[in-house]
């Protein structure tokens, strides 16, 4: 029973007080760049979760045999191999998304969440808890990705996963002949700024703001 509780604790930490993005400041590079649309964000979250889970598992199995002085290069090789596998699978099954993610799939290798979890957890724990820790951290990262992508796609394009959410009749229509807003048209326009890179940063800032207002222990002095 205590085993189960321990596992649950490892699993839930990354969603709140140990969130890799908003608390530990790990893996931000890719978190921001792939969040213009919800679909690539989901694919990215899934890829990172798989890589963190399995790299934690593999390194945890090897933890007693890796010499301390070369551990970083061993970790990098394990991660790079997993990322190559993920990249080939993405290219084979979801080619469009893999094109959209472009270099950011390769950048999973240098995503600090991976090295951070390997150093902090997998090197000192048994394989099963390490695997849970990896999966949970990948998901904690994925949650932030999905929240940011949700707001950016909804307000930037008026869609979610490519499906129209905001009704067409709400949109402002410009009358081409006069150049003014056509009579009887709607009141809504997509916010072009949300799609641009700076807004991703500001949305993450807002998430941190909300998170730290609720969880006061995390606030800076």
């Amino acid at each position: 029973m205590s085993n189960f509780k321990n596992g649950l604790k490892i699993f839930t930490a990354p969603f709140n007080s140990g969130n890799p993005v908003t608390v530990l400041v790990l893996g931000i590079c890719s978190a921001l760049a792939v969040t213009v649309k919800l679909q690539p964000a989901l694919v990215m979250a899934l890829s990172v979760t798989i890589v963190t889970g399995f790299s934690n598992l593999i390194i945890s199995f090897l933890r007693n045999t890796i010499p301390n002085s070369i551990r970083i290069i061993v970790q990098l090789l394990v991660i790079a191999t997993l990322v190559i596998l993920v990249n080939e699978i993405l290219k084979a099954y979801v080619y469009d998304v893999s094109k959209q993610l472009s270099v950011y799939v390769g950048l999973i290798i240098t995503n600090c969440i991976l090295m951070g979890r390997l150093e902090a957890f997998a090197l000192g724990n048994k394989p099963i808890p390490s695997f849970i820790d990896g999966i949970a951290n990948g998901m904690g990262y994925g949650v932030i990705l999905v929240v940011v992508a949700f707001f950016r796609e909804l307000f930037g394009s008026g869609t979610l996963l490519g499906i129209k959410i905001i009704p067409e009749s709400w949109y402002v229509v410009v009358d081409k002949s006069t150049g003014y807003i056509a009579e009887g048209s709607g009141f809504y326009l997509n916010n072009g700024l949300v799609i641009l890179p700076p807004m991703a940063l500001i949305i993450v800032g807002c998430i941190i703001w909300v998170h730290r207002s609720i969880n006061k222990d995390l606030q800076d002095k």
């Binding site: 991703a200 800032g205 941190i208 909300v210 730290r212 606030q219 800076d220």
Partner: peptide
């Protein structure tokens, strides 16, 4: 207070 440190750095970068 909740914005101090990390939060405000993100917004300034934005």
């Amino acid at each position: 207070k909740p914005l101090r440190g990390l939060g405000i750095s993100f917004m300034i970068t934005g």
